[in-house]
């Protein structure tokens, strides 16, 4: 297969992957961020202590996390049809991807927010801040580097899930690799697709690390996410 033949297929597949990952990331943030914060606030010792809510949210999140994505994708097909009107195509796949990513991100958000020093919460309260103020001014900004790292992990997981979504008609790079590389023995296309996926994942990780570093003002001693992929750049910046 020549590059001229591959090029339109690849750009179409990239676009589809982008739609699937992009939309589901946005929805995952909209759902996972509040859920994660809620898990921390309602926990024992939290600002909105509420065992019932905490348990309920925890169970829902665990349920979403324990279901293998392939099964989740198929079991929500009726729901997907109800929301989008079809079960085929990149747009339709946004539904199962979002449902899979929300609990995933919620746990990561929970861990990140829990790391924030309780003293800061106390300080904001002592100034007369409400719970909402504590969340907005202390919990979220202070955990931002970890939140960005969590989001990066989620996006990369979503790229992986989106390849699976390709198998049931979602399109995208995974679908391309299976249809051409696996079923038609177009090894060259398979290799190119893998290459493209590696580049995308690397770029996302790099962007995430850079953003997390930029958001962190704690200095180099603490748990700042270091650049994992670009050592020389990190070295020049440190000098």
């Amino acid at each position: 297969m020549s590059w001229a033949e591959m090029q339109p297929l690849l750009s179409q597949a990239c676009w589809e992957t982008l739609i699937m990952v992009g939309w589901s990331t946005l929805i995952a943030v909209a759902g996972g961020l509040p859920l994660g914060v809620l898990l921390v606030l309602t926990d024992r010792g939290g600002l909105l202590r509420n065992a019932t809510v905490n348990k309920a949210v925890g169970v829902v999140v665990n349920l979403g996390r324990s279901l293998p994505f392939l099964i989740l994708m198929i079991s929500v097909l009726p729901f997907t049809r109800w929301v989008i009107g079809t079960t085929i195509g990149a747009e339709a796949m946004v539904v199962p991807l979002s449902i899979g990513a929300i609990p995933f991100l919620a746990r990561l958000v929970e861990t990140a927010v829990r790391e924030v020093d309780g003293g800061l919460v106390e300080a904001v309260q002592a100034m007369g801040g409400s719970t909402w103020t504590v969340v907005r001014k202390a919990l979220l900004p202070e955990s931002l580097p970890s939140l960005i790292a969590g989001l990066t992990t989620t996006v990369i997981a979503l790229i992986g899930y989106s390849a699976m979504a390709g198998t049931i008609g979602g399109g995208g790079l995974g679908d391309l690799a299976i249809r051409y590389g696996y079923q038609r023995f177009e090894t060259s296309l398979m290799l190119v697709t893998i290459g493209v996926l590696i580049v995308i994942v690397t770029a996302v990780q790099l962007a995430g690390d850079l953003a997390a570093r930029g958001a962190s003002h704690r200095g180099r001693t603490s748990t700042t996410p270091r650049l994992r992929l670009l050592r020389p750049a990190a070295a020049t910046e440190a000098s």
Binding site: D117, A123, H217
Partner: peptide, 9 residues
Amino acid sequence: FQHFNLLSS
């Protein structure tokens, strides 16, 4: 506070 409790961000 003893540990200052300043927002690092």
